[in-house]
Simulated assay, not measured.
Amino acid sequence: MKRLFTLVLSMLLLLGVSTSAQALVIFNDWSLNLDTVGEAGLTGQVDNINQILFDGIAYSQTNDTNGDGIPGIGEIGATDGLLASYMYTETPGSPAPTTESWGFEMTFTYSMNSVGIDPATGSNYEHLAAGTTLSGSDAYLQRDGMLYVYIDASADADTTDGSGFSDGTLIAKFALVAGVGGQFSTVTMDGHDDATYELVWALDNVLLDSYGNDLQDSIGTDAASITITDTNFDGDDDANGMYDSTYGSWNPGTQSSTNFIASLNGSGGMGGSAVPEPATILLFGFGLLGVAGISRRKKG
């Protein structure tokens, strides 16, 4: 029987700083088996993983079918994101966790499609499941709705030009699940997002829970999930009232509420209770964007 694990991520906005932001993902007593990754020079097993620290940035577009320059109900959105991790913390039976270097690079690439919904629901957009086909004038926004996780012996991910995020060994793939997204404010140029990606593939015996169970074993039955909750993003890093985040690999041209780059930041945690369950659930966090709306909070 698998154990039930949950990871809850709450992303915090990074305001008035660089376009690349640090975020924190908290794991509870997880292991990463490097012997089965196959990256030259990476051996052994990283145990007792409690937190992962990473940098991130994302690019959001909306089709703006009514031409008003504001994402709205029924309009389709697309998001692409990149994350890189170099540090983690562990808690070896102590109340004071220590911060360690991976000694390698862990990267994440992800994408999603969304559609604007009535903000009276509490959110103003929802996610479309991976595999949803966009046609006609919306086809240019088509995304695969996948999240990919890589391990790389070389720390070469570059948050200024987008290189080095997918040149390592792919260890896991997750597919976006349809569901309520979050809110985006065209006034404050920031927002928050919730999403779930379900595990569809993983290398054998690489990601292990505290009992040594292989996350890959859950595929096809009660697949593990990466659930992003209360993730926040900011399209105006320097708080000057304009969309002006920059990123080398994405060239949005003139940025607006329907075409912008945003920095990501936040923190979260995964509780590892020893409760027997038929599935292993993994909730994981990072910044995502979507379409439409009203922000949870204003800039200071």
Rank of each mutant, 00 (worst) to 15 (best):
M1K: 14
T6N: 10
T6E: 04
T6H: 13
L9R: 10
L12R: 15
L14F: 04
L14S: 08
V17Y: 11
S18H: 12
T19L: 03
T19C: 15
S20L: 13
A23D: 04
L24C: 12
S31Y: 08
N33Y: 00
N33L: 00
V37N: 00
E39V: 07
G41V: 04
G41E: 02
T43S: 11
T43K: 10
G44A: 03
I52W: 13
I52T: 07
L53N: 05
G56W: 00
I57A: 08
Y59A: 05
Q61A: 13
T62A: 09
D64C: 09
I70W: 01
E75D: 15
E75C: 08
E75M: 10
T79W: 11
D80N: 02
L83Y: 10
Y86K: 07
T89Y: 14
T89N: 06
P92Q: 14
P95F: 12
P95Q: 13
A96D: 09
A96S: 12
T98Y: 10
W102L: 10
G103H: 02
G103L: 02
M106D: 00
F108L: 15
T109N: 07
S111R: 11
S111D: 15
P119R: 12
P119Q: 08
G122M: 13
N124V: 14
H127G: 06
L128C: 06
G131Q: 02
G131C: 02
T132S: 07
T133M: 11
L134E: 04
L134M: 09
S137D: 15
G145I: 05
M146A: 02
S154Y: 13
D156Q: 03
D158C: 01
D161W: 09
G164H: 05
G164T: 09
F165Q: 00
F165I: 00
D167T: 14
K173A: 03
L176I: 02
L176N: 05
A178G: 03
G181Y: 00
T186P: 03
T186F: 01
G191M: 01
D193F: 01
T196E: 07
Y197D: 00
E198Y: 00
L199N: 00
W201L: 04
A202R: 00
L207V: 07
G212N: 14
N213P: 02
I219L: 05
T221I: 15
A223E: 06
A224P: 11
S225C: 06
S225A: 10
I226R: 11
I226W: 08
T229C: 01
N232P: 07
D237V: 13
D237I: 13
D238A: 10
G241I: 03
Y247A: 00
G248I: 05
W250L: 07
N251G: 14
P252H: 14
T254W: 12
S256F: 09
S256D: 12
T258R: 04
S263L: 05
G266Y: 01
G266T: 12
G266V: 04
G268I: 11
M270F: 14
G271S: 14
G271P: 05
G272Y: 15
P276Y: 14
P278F: 08
T280P: 06
I281S: 05
I281Y: 08
L282P: 01
G285V: 08
L288W: 07
L289N: 14
G290P: 01
A292R: 08
G293F: 12
G293N: 11
R297D: 08
R297G: 07
R297V: 05
G300L: 15
